[in-house]
């Protein structure tokens, strides 16, 4: 078996980079993920040329992406972790003392119109960028990679409660950001 890793880089590098960038949302990390994938490909003996090289490489890349997301989420000040336990106070922006919505959630829908949909997705993209990076990472890890929650906790070495709290906060912030920045019922 001959493996020309540089050929793989030329043929699939762009795709792998986009795949990583879409999930990690950071060019440097995406580059790291592609590099780690290539290095793993050199060492691996699993590829027999039966499956397509791209599928095989993407499989490796997925693991590298999770490694990087995990690192990002774990590299946080201890004070942040302590703060995460204080969920009750952190939701004060959204609820009053009796647990009622301060501002009721609005109706949000994915626009049917292609152009509007693209604008909607751009707004969402900007909202994700505004999240604290660890919240963005855990949100992407869970809602895009569809990693199951038990796995997330194992990967991150955090309690299940902490994972839910982070996901809850990320989603709460994102839907609010969408409400503010996406004008509901805009007529094209």
């Amino acid at each position: 078996m001959t493996k020309n890793v540089n050929d793989w880089l030329n043929q699939h590098g762009d795709y792998l980079y986009r795949f990583a960038l879409a999930r990690l949302r950071n060019p440097h990390q995406a580059e790291d993920a592609v590099q780690e994938t290539m290095l793993a490909a050199i060492k691996s003996t699993n590829f027999e040329g039966e499956s397509s090289a791209r599928t095989w490489l993407t499989g490796i890349l997925k693991h590298k992406i999770i490694d990087l997301q995990r690192k990002l989420i774990r590299e946080q000040p201890i004070s942040d972790l302590v703060d995460l336990d204080a969920t009750e106070t952190s939701m004060d922006d959204f609820f009053d003392a009796t647990g009622h919505w301060l501002e009721k959630p609005q109706a949000l829908e994915m626009p049917e119109n292609t152009l509007q949909q693209k604008q909607f997705l751009t707004v969402l993209n900007n909202c994700i960028d505004k999240l604290p990076s660890k919240l963005a990472a855990i949100f992407m890890m869970r809602d895009v990679n569809e990693t199951d929650n038990e796995n997330i906790c194992k990967e991150l070495d955090i309690t299940a409660t902490n994972a839910w709290v982070m996901l809850y906060r990320a989603r709460m912030g994102l839907r609010k950001c969408l409400e503010i920045n996406w004008v509901v019922g805009t007529v094209s």
């Binding site: 879409a22 994915m110 997705l121 969402l124 992407m140 809602d143 895009v144 989603r171 839907r175």
Partner: peptide
């Protein structure tokens, strides 16, 4: 919607 949309963004 958020889950659907973030997958489309990706």
């Amino acid at each position: 919607l958020l889950r659907l949309a973030v997958n489309r963004v990706t």
